[in-house]
């Protein structure tokens, strides 16, 4: 694959080909979200990491003002019980909902997030393709 084609695929993955997070989250109600999980995969923390890698860029692309904080905690020696949560923050700065992401697939976490948040899908003609 040429350099340009690879780059195009990368950009399209952000803005076009990843369908699930192509939603507009109600900006009047929500300020952002905060994800807390482990930097390592063990103890069921792979789901949130994959969610961050696969879905959050698209979510941020279509919601530029939605603040996404990712807090990753190093726990190489497996000594600490690290929380694995997603907090949804409303416009006043309060946490209104918390999702436990431990031992869940990134797809399921996204479904759960969308079921708890007011949103509407972005129409097909407004999607940006490189």
């Amino acid at each position: 694959m040429s350099k340009v084609a690879r780059q195009k695929n990368f950009l399209n993955a952000i803005s076009f080909t990843t369908k699930k997070p192509q939603v507009l989250i109600n900006p009047g109600k929500y300020q952002g979200m905060r994800l807390t999980f482990q930097a390592q995969n063990h103890s069921g923390h792979m789901g949130p990491r994959m969610l961050w890698r696969k879905y959050l860029p698209t979510l941020q692309f279509y919601n530029p003002n939605f603040k996404i904080d990712v807090v990753r905690i190093n726990n190489e020696k497996k000594t600490v019980n690290v929380p694995c949560t997603m907090e949804i923050i409303d416009n006043t700065g309060k946490t209104i909902d918390t999702i436990d992401m431990k031992n869940k697939m990134y797809d399921n976490i996204m479904d759960e997030f969308l079921s708890k948040v007011e949103h509407k899908p972005i129409p097909e003609d407004e999607l940006i393709q490189v």
Binding site: S15, P57, Q60, F61, V70
Partner: peptide, 11 residues
């Protein structure tokens, strides 16, 4: 910049 911000999310 919109693409860059999306690529940098959570860093």
């Amino acid at each position: 910049l919109r693409y860059l911000r999306a690529a940098e999310v959570g860093q």
